[in-house]
Nucleic acid binder design. Structure first.
Lengths: 246, 246
DNA sequence: GAGTGGTCTAGACCACGAC
DNA sequence: TCGTGGTCTAGACCACTCT
């Protein structure tokens, strides 16, 4: 019976604890993004539990987006959100068709500064810690479409602060992984409506006070830490998003 | 082995077929909204399968929103989407706080007409079939906030066409269930931006060409049929929506 | 053919909720 | 106390993928 009390003291079922244990091993880098973890049967044997119990643990991590299962091949650590996820909120129509490609990226500015109180809270940083702030313009068919302000905590993103932004990729999230070892696992985006100020309008080649959609994003890594704050503005008339309820 | 071939011919696993069988029984009204279905053990026995297999079937229907499980009580047929689901896209701030109540509803017009080609397709109606079209204004604190155009297929919604719209409830979906036996199980909402025309602006007490959010909704019943088409307009500055990615 | 995840069985016991 | 869903076991066999 003491086993059961212990289970309960830890606040979860056996498969819940197994899921936590496996998650910890993934976070510690025992298996990297895109790599397979051991087979169900091997895990069940090594933890001394039934197959069904391990399967429930894996199901939790799959639902959470940490693992992906492929029938006949194995169970793999996620490679994270791809860098084009902002495009799900917009449908830009260029002069030609098939403009649903990945936008080109141009870094307008990059600087270090002290984190605000809000940023310290979001990133769990000590007061006065440094962050990297980027301004970025994304274009389709040489036409500007999205203007972004991105804040990244240091020292996690130090490799980016030390490199030339002209050499950066069009997609940031895969680059975060390659250069800083940061895997973006999920984002939370809050959408609202606003108007462009003079600077923003000029960069997007739109009129001052043109209506825009404001996307305020928090991006989280595989450990659930917030590792990016991003504000994106785009033409309100190019906004199109479909939501399922229930 | 022929059993297996049959299984495969029907294109799914045993628990998949069980889920379909149970869904059919629910659609036929064997158990109404909010009512419990038989216990897992009883279902397993009556279908001659193991408990785990029935549990997988039920899990499918739970994921689909058709069933809800309550530990210690039973498994229940869903009561559907509540009628305030449109409010998830807006945050109206009235003069006082705590304005997150359900908006009051006023039916501006109600008329029968022939369905358009698109409506016939969405509702699976024969060409020239009749639909009920409603215009509706929703208000918080006596201030208009949402303007809606709603199209409902006949004869399904005949009871509404025959009744006085002054007696209708503020929430339509529960009323659909009570008066027409229609349970709204899920909706698909496509969001975009537009501007108010003169009529719309007057009804929402806003300026002509004021920016608005356009929500184009398809609502589906428990059988997966589209049973409502709705277009909702609201002040773009009251738009606020949070989406999770991955 | 070997190894992976997917399906299925026939039990046991636990935790929750109502009477 | 009883009936419900939730957890767990120790197997068996099937389906997919690669070599």
């Amino acid at each position: 019976m003491s086993t059961h009390v212990t289970d309960h003291a830890l606040g979860q079922s056996r498969y819940g604890k197994l899921a936590q244990a496996l998650r910890d091993r993934i976070l510690q880098g025992e298996w990297g993004p895109g790599e397979p973890i051991p087979a169900e049967s091997a895990l069940a044997q090594s933890y001394g539990v039934a197959l069904g119990t391990i399967r429930q643990a894996l199901a939790l991590l799959v639902e959470d987006g940490v693992l992906q299962r492929r029938h006949g091949k194995g169970t793999f650590v996620t490679t994270g959100v791809d860098g084009a996820s902002m495009m799900r909120f917009f449908r830009f129509r260029g002069p030609d068709e098939a403009s649903s490609r990945t936008p080109a990226s141009r870094i307008l500015s990059s600087r270090l500064r002290s984190a605000s109180v809000q940023e310290c809270h979001a990133f769990q940083l000590a007061p006065g810690a440094q962050v990297l702030q980027l301004e970025r313009l994304r274009s389709l068919n040489a036409e500007p479409c999205l203007l972004e302000s991105i804040v990244l905590p240091l020292p996690l993103f130090g490799p980016l602060a030390d490199s030339d932004s002209q050499t950066w990729d069009d997609l940031l999230y895969p680059m975060y992984q390659q250069r800083c070892g940061v895997v973006i696992q999920k984002t939370q985006d809050t959408l609202s409506f606003s108007q462009l100020n003079a600077t923003q309008a000029k960069r997007l080649k739109l009129a001052v006070a043109h209506p825009c959609v404001l996307v305020e994003r928090q991006a989280f890594d595989i450990a659930g830490r917030c590792v990016e704050l991003r504000t994106t503005r785009g033409d309100a008339y190019s906004f199109k998003y479909t939501a399922q309820v229930q």
